[in-house]
Each structure stands twice: as structure tokens, then as C-alpha cells.
């Protein structure tokens, strides 16, 4: 599907927002669920883009740059796959291919992240100089420039994909044989595990594993929605916290109680 000028501007604007949020991490415009939906909204392909956002969100749930492990850039993955999906014009059928094409792009996007963060170092040195002059306006301005630089980081690749245009993207998607797209879909189902594994690695302690096991087993009951599972999880957390506090005092109390009657009886004798 070809886009008109206004749509192209809006798509690039959404990409810009996603890029900003990729570093700010506040409004979450860079999360696939939001970014893909917005691109769907401005291009008039809301339906397939929401489903794409959902699929990609599941994959990217655990993507966070923690320590040495660097995850693909969720912002670029979301924006690139949504644009590819829209240009390809295959509707929901094109989702798997769009994701599979977008993930390598998102990896390439990490290079841009590194460049931008290095440039930001230069910016804070300028801010230092302005701070020494007490120039508030300049500090504000450079902060805004730094944020815009992050937005441009995603807006440029988005613009490039748009510049390639609908026909080549469509041709590329159509050239993909069924075994490849099906296989990529199967791969996509498994890729979800990587994000979860990253998060679990950060949280897992001996104390926490039983809760993981409970969650895993209880989730096999198909009637339970995520809200129901959340309720069980919150209850478990509260019960555990309450019990682990009571544990200390209760055992003390127990000792005192068993001590007392026996002591009393012995005293009586």
C-alpha cells in the first residue's frame, strides 16, 4: 500500500516519538503495543497493526538493557515492522514476515543508539559550559536537542524504509516462500522465551522459584484470564510477606506458650 504525504509525515512523527521514548522510558510510546497501534492509526490499517503490536509486545516484554545483556531496540523493531506490514499490504497474513524482517533491523539500530549516547556526552560538556555561565535557557535547549536526537535515531530509519517504497517491500514479502514465512512464525513463537529468560535471570533466587513453578502450573487452566492470574499472584505475594513476618513472632510465641504450661505444671509439682 502506498502512503500519501500526510501519512508519511505522521508515520515519521510516530517514529520520532518512539525514538524519544526509547531513551526516556516514561510514556512508553516505544513499546510495540503503542507504537504499532499509532502507525496503524495514521495509515488507516489499524486492525492488522494492533495484532502486530500484540505479537511483538509478547516478544519484547522482557527486552530491557540490563547489565551486559543488550536486547534489540524495541522502538525500532516496532516502527520498522509496522511500516513493513503497512507497505506490504498483506494484512494480518504479513505479520510473521514483518516481525522477522524487523528484528535484524532492530539489532542494527543498536549501533545508532551507541552513536547517539556518545554524542550526548558531548552535549553534557556543552551543558557544563553553560552551567558555568548560569545560562538556564541554553541548558534547557541542549536537553531538548538531546531528546530530539533520540527521536531522529528512529525517524531516519523509518524514513529510509518509507523511501524504499511499497513496491519493493511488497515484492520482497511476496518473494518469501510459504515454508520460510511459516518457519519464521514458528521461530517467532519461540523467540518470546528470550525476553522472559532475561527477566527471570534478573529476578530468580532460591526463594522466588516456587512462585515461578506455581505460575507455570496454574496457567495450564485455560479458564483463568491474566487478570485472574494477577489476582492470584498478588494474593500470594501478600500472604507470603505477611507470613514471613509472622513466622518470626509466631515461633517465639509458640516457644513461650509451650514453655509456660509445662513450666506451670512442673512448678505445681
Amino acid at each position: 500500500m502506498s502512503l500519501n504525504a500526510i501519512q508519511i509525515i505522521l508515520v515519521i512523527f510516530v517514529a520520532f516519538l518512539a525514538g524519544m521514548e526509547g531513551i526516556l522510558d516514561e510514556f512508553e510510546f516505544h513499546q510495540p503495543l503503542v507504537a504499532c497501534t499509532l502507525i496503524g492509526l495514521v495509515t488507516g490499517q489499524l486492525g492488522p497493526c494492533i495484532v502486530l503490536g500484540g505479537s511483538l509486545q509478547m516478544i519484547a516484554l522482557g527486552w530491557a538493557n540490563i547489565g551486559a545483556a543488550v536486547a534489540p531496540d524495541a522502538a525500532l523493531a516496532a516502527v520498522a515492522s509496522a511500516i513493513i506490514l503497512v507497505l506490504g499490504g498483506q494484512g494480518s497474513k504479513g505479520i510473521n514476515s514483518a516481525i522477522a524482517l524487523a528484528v535484524p533491523l532492530a539489532v542494527a539500530g543498536l549501533l545508532l543508539t551507541t552513536i547517539v549516547r556518545t554524542l550526548a556526552t558531548a552535549i553534557v560538556h556543552i551543558m557544563d559550559r553553560e552551567a558555568a555561565k548560569g545560562n538556564f535557557r541554553a541548558i534547557d535547549m541542549w536537553q531538548v536537542i538531546a531528546i530530539c536526537m533520540q527521536g531522529v535515531r528512529i525517524a531516519i530509519p523509518a524514513g529510509l524504509i518509507l523511501a524504499i517504497g511499497a513496491d519493493p517491500v511488497k515484492a520482497m514479502l511476496n518473494a518469501m516462500p510459504a515454508w520460510l514465512t511459516d518457519g519464521l512464525g514458528i521461530g517467532g513463537g519461540m523467540v518470546v522465551a528470550v525476553g522472559y529468560a532475561m527477566v527471570i535471570n534478573m529476578m530468580a533466587t532460591r526463594e522466588m522459584w516456587p512462585f515461578f513453578a506455581l505460575g507455570f502450573v496454574i496457567a495450564t487452566i485455560p479458564d483463568l484470564t491474566l487478570i485472574a492470574l494477577g489476582t492470584i499472584g498478588i494474593s500470594l505475594a501478600l500472604i507470603y510477606l505477611a507470613l514471613s513476618k509472622m513466622g518470626g513472632s509466631a515461633s517465639n510465641g509458640a516457644v513461650a506458650n509451650t514453655g509456660d504450661p509445662v513450666g506451670d505444671i512442673i512448678d505445681k509439682y
Binding site: M203, G215, F216, L236
Partner: peptide, 12 residues
Amino acid sequence: ILGMFILGSLVN
């Protein structure tokens, strides 16, 4: 605790 519980169910 909540996170690990939910992650368990998400994996499933």
C-alpha cells in the same frame, strides 16, 4: 513474587 508468578504463567 508477583513478577515470577506471572512470568511462570506467561512462559506457559
